[in-house]
Amino acid sequence: MGFALLVIIWLITFGSAYFFIAKTWWLPVGASAAAHWIDGQFTLTYVLMGIVFFAAQLSLGYIVWKYRERPSSGPVEYSHGNTTLEVVWTILTAVLFIGLNLMGSSVWASQRFDPAQPGAVPVEVTGMQFAWYFRYPGLDGKYGATNATLMDPSAGGEAAVGLDPSDPAAKDDVVTGTMFLPVNREVDLSIRSVDVIHSFFVPSLRFKQDAVPGLNIHMHFTPNQIGDYEIACAELCGLGHYKMHGIVKVVSQEDFDRWLAAREAEKQ
């Protein structure tokens, strides 16, 4: 029985680790500036935790096999523990865990402590059951007022976010169902929700933030590879949660300007 445990525990350990090491399923390709740092911290955590995982599981398997009761077993070692070992082990794990945490926190600080740089592209993200809308403030750089009494989700677009046409700042606002972003420029997001909590999650851009009704959350990131990236809602929002998805199209600056100009022209 001891040997069977050793074999199974070791097999589970190696089997689980295989798919991590072979990266059969891994983080999607990172297409934002933060991806490098986030993935670095992930890899560091993964290597350190991997070592602990191996050490603990392999020794568990070994110990249960080695110290199984046999006719030849001698008396057990009568011991209530070893305080020195205990203290050393405590300090080691404390250093490991707290050190790991401090290393990750600088990345977090760069992502979330500071606001977006001046000159970032402003985009407002609005979540509602079960769609995402994206609003660009237009040439004046100001979002027009929105009003709950004007919201009409079935109409889509501007009506869905309740854009108030009487506000002069709203005249040039562009509302779309697909998010266009210029590559290598920081994006200044305002994330909102009109009904329940949603979460704006773009795995390839290493970005996630809940959209909370009653809050207007400012976040920023910088996409650095041209391509189409999928958005998946990451907070349970109702029966259509699984199909509340969208696309972020990261394009060149010229393509972005051309696209935005065309949308503005449509509005006139």
């Binding site: 689980s16 983080l27 933060a34 740092w37 986030i38 911290q41 992930f42 955590t45 993964y46 350190l48 935790m49 602990v52 995982f53 603990a56 599981q57 568990l60 865990f97 790991l100 945490n101 990750g104 926190s105 990345v107 977090w108 992502q111 979330r112 795995p203 290493r206 970005f207 996630k208 990451a234």
Partner: peptide
């Protein structure tokens, strides 16, 4: 051990950007 060791991943807000 197996369940516990994924804890330090999730305990880091920066990794929760991907894992939450």
């Amino acid at each position: 051990v197996s369940g516990g060791l994924s804890g330090p991943f999730l305990a880091q807000p920066v990794l929760d950007i991907q894992l939450h």
